[in-house]
């Protein structure tokens, strides 16, 4: 400074020390943040610990392999020992089939909706439409269950099932998935309602990643004489593919864990059938449907089913991460790879 005379102001040294309550603010905040972060791990640890503790005797009694592969489920009534039969395959099958069905229906719909919102809809329709789709996620799942049971299944899904049954049952091999008899509450019914439930999740993410496709890529394709359709399929979907995979996996995770709507719509029997029109049960659905009246040994068995479900969802999520990471890495690697 031009006026610096080399003399320091007398107050300088003390002003450098923090004073007052503010000197505790940072450490305090640090402690609170740490506690919050740690509590997440503690809660997760407790949950895994206690459920696994309860489930272990069931796995021991039934045998781990038999628990996942046997379709013999007979609830016991003992307070002190295991007397029933606890093969959960029927429910695992129900969970997997309803969820895959939901994804198979919801994914193409979500891509179409996202393309419409991003590329085709008139400007003033875009936001309301996106908002409406997301609103679907705000509807409580018990409402979905009731609506599905009382309206959607009898008036819409049932006729579709009968049509599919009539036209596809004669087809060899594939026909077995569409074999009768047709039950109004079935894997198919639950899968369709699940599709509506996971549509907003998949759409929200798909729409977002499609919106991120760089404008210059789109212009490049148009500049070469691509039509709207070609731009959408060859540039937009292609570029946002990793994001769409991630969105799908997230939707699948939601479908696997969905409980009450599925419990109301899936049929509720303890058997399973290859046909999509069979009324079976899912893992979460079976827990919800029978927990109330279960004897102590069966409660433990249901907890074991819960642990099994948790394991399946964890596997799906890990696979999803790996898949997204792998796709991203392939593109990234290729971009970084250069000849020496």
């Amino acid at each position: 400074m031009a006026t610096d005379t080399g003399q320091r102001p007398a107050s300088a040294p003390s002003s450098l020390r923090s004073s007052g309550p503010s000197r505790y603010a940072d450490p305090l905040f640090r402690a609170i943040a740490f506690t919050a972060g740690a509590s997440v791990l503690v809660i997760l640890g407790l949950m895994i610990g206690t459920t696994t503790r309860d489930a272990l005797p069931v796995f021991e009694y039934q045998g781990l392999v038999s628990f996942f592969t046997s379709d013999e489920w007979r609830a016991g009534f003992s307070r002190t020992e295991f007397t029933g039969e606890y093969g959960a395959f029927s429910f695992i099958y129900g969970t997997v089939v309803t969820s895959l069905l939901a994804v198979a229906v919801a994914l193409p719909l979500a891509i179409a909706v996202s393309l419409y919102i991003n590329r085709l809809a008139p400007k003033r329709l875009k936001r309301p439409l996106a908002y409406t789709v997301e609103l679907l996620a705000a509807i409580p799942s018990v409402v979905y269950g009731l609506w599905g049971l009382l309206f959607f299944a009898p008036t819409f899904i049932r006729p579709v099932m009968e049509l599919l049954n009539r036209t596809l049952e004669p087809v060899p091999i594939l026909g077995r998935l569409f074999a009768g008899p047709v039950f109004t509450t079935s894997y198919f019914t639950a899968g369709m309602v699940l599709a509506v439930m996971i549509l907003p999740i998949i759409t929200a993410i798909t729409r977002e990643v499609m919106a991120q496709v760089p404008r210059d890529q789109v212009d490049a394709a148009y500049g070469m004489g691509a039509t709207d359709f070609e731009v959408m399929t060859k540039v937009i979907i292609r570029t946002s593919f990793p994001g769409i995979v991630g969105a799908t996996m997230l939707g699948l995770g939601r479908a696997l864990g969905e409980t009450i709507a599925v419990a109301m719509l899936v049929g509720g029997s303890q058997r399973w059938g290859l046909s999509l029109f069979f009324g079976g049960d899912s893992m979460a659905g079976h827990i919800a449907n029978t927990f109330q009246d279960a004897a102590p040994e069966t409660v433990l068995a249901l907890i074991a089913v819960g642990v099994g479900l948790f394991v399946i969802t964890v596997i799906v999520n890990v696979l999803a991460r790996l898949l997204v990471w792998r796709i991203g890495r392939v593109a990234g690697d290729a971009a970084l790879r250069r000849r020496p």
Binding site: P214, D216, Q217, D219, A220, A221, Y222, G223, M224, G225, A226, T227, K234, V235, R238, T239, A331, A334
Partner: peptide, 27 residues
């Protein structure tokens, strides 16, 4: 689209597609 096919365009910022060199040209 037919007009743009006959009349090529090169943009301000290089904008190759996220694909191989070959596929870019073959697009």
């Amino acid at each position: 689209a037919e007009v743009r096919r006959r009349i090529g365009m090169v943009f301000q910022k290089p904008n190759p597609f996220a694909m191989s060199i070959y596929d870019n040209v073959a697009f």
